[in-house]
Design a protein around this nucleic acid. Structure first.
Lengths: 249, 249
DNA sequence: CTGAATGCTATCATCAGACAACCAGACCAT
DNA sequence: ATGGTCTGGTTGTCTGATGATAGCATTCAG
């Protein structure tokens, strides 16, 4: 888990530097040769690492000129490489708020679609996950796993592979948020788990009845509660007007 | 456009082979040396290419054993590398249907949020794009560009950077679908563009008035129309029940 | 004959060095 | 001044070699 291949580790370090702003957009990276010295590896390793870094859209190399850091807009923020670094070192509160908002959009709609499209076997899966949650009320890890399974089953039952793929992409983030939360000290009470199960059950019942609107509503409610629990900063969870400079493109 | 770096091109070819099922999951790739011969390049090029391929989750290499193709579930379908190949060679009808469904979910919700959060300057951007569309009724390329700008402005005004990022990821697909469509012979009539502008204007007016629900509704309507136009296969645009084997994980 | 230790071979991982292609800026000739 | 040329630096690609590891065949003690 900790030790991937050498180029992989080097790539992570370089990505970290860029994410942390140690290397800023439009700035030239050190020469490949310099990087070799800095990391104590050969040039092939540096080149493979850079292939990863440029693969997530963070840099572009030009023969004869060097390698520059690209603008953050062109980074692929959903690549596991960047995600991992962000979660480890650079995740701000806004990151989590945005994340849960996106989740709500996707999952509430997925619940709605699932109500319309779910196959019996998929309903069975949801039932099984629910039961697993109830059984695991005292076992945090199993509970979280069953929880994730339930959400996954819903998304899958929505019958849109692209959404499933997208949700898979968010999975690492999901896991981290679920495990640590933004304020890790808050969650984890068995009493919360009771509520959790109840809310899941409500979502499931709507899906089972084919009540699209109700399912969507219930999922939205549930995630609102999740947001309160995981973020635990009421002022932030109601998102204020964005205060950003106009978008140029 | 056609000529990226050598490893990049090799990577695309290998990815194509995998996407097309020429190389199946759990199957061993040819040796690095064999790949060298096949593509007529040196081993460093192959290795850098493979770094890209494994970077999108399609393969995993094991020292002493070889490199195997991973199950499609672990591919990062939203990476530009795979997306490009898919759009070029492997895009099925279902792909487009799923795509437009995802778009509808994201954009209708984005329109709703934009109605609540859009800054005056962001409304100005939308206005500008609308005007640009009207001016470019006879210039297909400019029209499409302005169209995309409008949609981007809305997503941006929703004030959730993660959604913006996600939408950026979908951009290449958007462009391709817009340019070629699934049935490229259908769209492109200036009359259609008139309707297009009208629908965009309707969405905008709701956003301008801060009418979240209306904006969402209007965007959904608009995309329903887009779906009809681009996919042009009424039977498919109403998605039937999924007929897939249960999900194992 | 059985089974475990041993060595062999294929394969990826990494290193080291070289040359080619290309760019930017300095320099020079007209 | 303008344009061409040279030069040093950087990435792109090739080549050959060594290390590490897994799988398989061989060998040999019991």
């Amino acid at each position: 888990m900790t030790s991937n291949s050498l180029p992989q580790r080097v790539a992570r370090q370089i990505i970290s530097r860029i994410v942390l702003g140690d290397l800023k957009p439009n700035q030239l990276l050190p020469t490949e040769e310099e990087l070799c010295e800095q990391f104590g590896v050969s040039r092939s390793v540096i080149r493979e690492a850079m292939r990863t870094v440029s693969g997530v859209g963070m840099t572009r190399s030009h023969q004869g000129r060097g390698t520059i850091v690209l603008d953050a807009r062109s980074w692929n923020e959903f690549s596991p490489e960047i995600l991992q670094v962000r979660v480890e070192v650079g995740a701000t509160g806004e990151f989590f708020v945005d994340f849960i908002e996106l989740r709500t959009i996707l999952e509430s709609q997925a619940a709605s679609l699932a109500a319309e499209r779910a196959e019996p076997s998929q309903l069975d899966e949801m039932r099984a996950s629910l039961r697993a949650m109830e059984v695991a009320l005292d076992d945090r890890d199993s509970f979280v796993a069953a929880d994730l399974d339930f959400h996954n089953a819903i998304v899958f039952a929505a019958g849109n592979m692209m959404i499933v793929r997208l949700f898979d992409l968010l999975q690492p983030m999901l896991r981290i948020v679920r495990e640590r939360g933004y304020h890790p000290d808050i969650d984890g009470e068995p009493r919360d788990r009771q509520v959790d199960v109840l809310e899941h059950r409500k979502v499931f019942e709507h899906i089972e009845e084919g009540d699209a609107h109700g399912a969507k509503q219930a999922m939205t409610e549930h995630l609102r509660w999740v947001a309160r629990r995981e973020i635990a900063d009421p002022q932030r969870s109601v998102k204020p007007r964005a205060d950003k400079t106009a978008r140029e493109r």
